[in-house]
Nucleic acid binder design. Structure first.
Lengths: 169, 169
DNA sequence: TCAAATCTATACAACTTAGTAAAGATTATA
DNA sequence: TATAATCTTTACTAAGTTGTATAGATTTGA
């Protein structure tokens, strides 16, 4: 359970294009993005190609070409970015893909793990749907030094009452 | 951003051992776990070896041998399992590991993405620290048919007010 | 002691992801 | 038209993940 390189770097490229919306004609070349992000031109090419195929950005070819966001930065959420750049955290084929040697997962009739993954996927989705590229830009210069506030406190693990997985919120 | 095979299968093996705590001497052989999960003996061997090295289970060798949980199922949380089976979602070396061609991430002074990953990591941690293996067992037969309740509703994406990343809860 | 059933360690192949390389297609401009 | 700067496509290598294979070490019990 970790963030892929494509998600991280892809999101950074999108943010560059969101900043770019405010300058000149709103478009940035691969070279410019690569320089601003400290990535190779080849790698950024690969990332932007994927974002274009997913429909989040559009390209102009030729000597004055470049990439730009297809929609306003206030309408592009992290959820859109994540969908374009990676598999979803927990999708409909997950159980089928983890059936081991069987043709159907041995737990398909009664699986409590599946419920947990759904709850976590829900939490992730809730956050990602709330945050747009514009939010991220407008929060720059405000988050530094405040990270300690949102790093999870180290709770003690205690035995406790039964938990109903359908009522965790 | 996805669940690894090791997390999924490892958790299932832990749950088998949690069930096993209630039968006989509380220990299960690799063969038994493999049969109950529909996995190969070789693969379960690999998974249990990792769980043992992480300290979550202990082994007895020889003809009467097997694995058992080191602690009561009510004291083993999903967070413990996840820590033993995979990298954490977002850890302290993440930014250093994603510095591209530079020696230090170009955004290290002012990064709003980092805040988002922290918020999401926090959400995941909150859920995982709450749920024990015992919770998962006691919720079997109760979750089936109720999944629709916790699958995230398809919200419409609307432009909206600025979000303060430090105050998302 | 010996055999069978178990755990242990390491190596291996297939697949996916990360990142690089190179050749080609497009377009503005001189 | 020719050139240079751009995007596009495909192939490639390296590293990590997934799952299998094999040989070895340990223990019980006949």
């Amino acid at each position: 359970m970790k963030i892929t390189a494509l998600e991280e770097y892809g999101l950074r490229c999108l943010l560059q294009l969101a900043r770019g919306q405010k300058e000149a004609d709103g478009s940035l070349s691969i070279r410019t993005i690569a320089e601003r992000e400290g990535l190779s031109i080849e790698y950024v090419s690969k990332i932007t190609a994927q974002l274009r195929k997913a429909g989040l950005i559009e390209s102009t070819r030729g000597i004055r070409g470049g990439y730009r966001l297809r929609n306003d930065a206030s309408h592009v959420t992290l959820w859109h970015a994540s969908q374009a750049l990676s598999q979803t955290f927990f999708n409909s084929t997950f159980c089928m893909d983890h059936a081991g040697d069987e043709t159907e997962c041995v737990h398909h009739k009664d699986c409590s793990i599946r419920s947990v993954w759904n709850v976590i996927a829900d939490r992730i989705t809730q956050v990602m749907r709330k945050i747009t590229l514009e939010d991220l830009l407008s929060n720059e210069s405000k988050t530094d030094g405040k990270l300690m506030q949102i790093i999870p406190p180290k709770e003690k693990i205690n035995p406790k009452k039964r938990i109903n997985l359908t009522n965790l919120s």
